[in-house]
């Protein structure tokens, strides 16, 4: 890929964010190119979620610019932004609402002024993404009565129903067991290919990030800056991880996929 001809989907330039005098993000700059899957990793308190929130305009940065397809997001209304970026947030409060109605809310940004009802097209789009995410059979169930994993799939279906240029996910697998973690990340990877999605995801689990993402951004809690970014092999080195996470680990290639695999070493249990 020659980067000169490609317009980045997301372009973050020297972003700074502080809260009550304390700096949380310092001089963050990065791009996401079309059809790229970028994962943001870093220790607790390194500002991963805050970074996502500034991109979604839940928080306003102190300085710096964020552009989506060359539009500065500070100039976009929340409605226009919702046509470009959709989000799956960490934990979804179960609301008493049918799955179909929940997913259909994703069409809201596209409603004309004073439009109160979904068009036929909206219904078809919602149906399409409910099928792609495998929740079509739950369409008439209540959001409160399905499992956490299914609810997460509904959130993804809703975000896809927005047909965004950039899909942002904040730790979509953090409360799920490994089966659901794999299901969701496999699904996102498949959908990325089928729908040519561009994805920015916060991930806590370094091994999952290494396995699924095209590129990683490692945030440091100490400096509040990007410590390293690049392919999983470049970022997930023993040196990087031990510096940023301040913990003893070992990195080996995954015997199946060859991606970096991080081993935690139990110091309490000394071995020869």
């Amino acid at each position: 890929m020659t980067s000169k001809n490609i317009k980045p989907v997301l372009n973050v330039k020297s972003l700074n964010f502080g809260y009550k005098g304390a700096s949380i993000l310092k001089d963050i700059s990065f791009c996401i190119n079309p059809e790229e899957f970028v994962a943001v990793i870093g220790p607790n308190g390194s500002g991963k979620t805050t970074l996502i929130k500034t991109i979604l305009k839940h928080e306003i940065p102190d300085s710096g610019t964020i552009q989506i397809l060359e539009n500065d997001i500070s100039c976009l209304s929340s409605r226009d932004l919702a046509m470009h970026i959709s989000a799956v947030m960490q934990a979804i409060d179960p609301t008493a609402m049918k799955v179909r109605d929940y997913v259909l809310l994703g069409r809201m940004p596209f409603f004309r002024k004073y439009q109160f009802f979904e068009t036929r097209q909206d219904l078809d789009i919602a149906q399409k993404y409910m099928e792609l995410t495998g929740i079509a059979h739950l369409a008439d169930s209540q959001m409160t009565q399905i499992s956490g994993g299914e609810r997460q799939l509904c959130a993804i279906a809703k975000a896809l129903t927005q047909e965004p240029d950039l899909l942002v996910l904040d730790e979509p697998t953090s409360h799920l067991d490994i089966t659901h973690q794999k299901t969701i990340l496999d699904l996102i990877t498949t959908l990325k290919k089928e729908l040519s999605l561009t994805i920015l995801m916060v991930l806590h689990d370094l091994n999952l990030a290494a396995e699924y993402a095209d590129r990683l951004i490692l945030l440091s809690k100490e400096t509040k800056t990007i410590f390293s970014s690049g392919t999983p092999e470049d970022v997930l080195t023993q040196n990087h991880i031990q510096t940023v996470y301040r913990t003893q680990i070992k990195v080996e290639p995954n015997p199946v996929t060859g991606k970096p695999w991080i081993f935690i070493i139990n110091d309490m249990n000394p071995h020869e």
Binding site: L56, K57, H58, S78, R79, L81, M89, D93, L105, M108
Partner: peptide
């Protein structure tokens, strides 16, 4: 209001000027 039942942040992501 329908979007707000999901919470302020979700509603913002759905384009509501909360």
């Amino acid at each position: 209001l329908n979007a707000l039942t999901l919470g302020d942040e979700e509603a913002t992501s759905l384009g509501v000027n909360t």
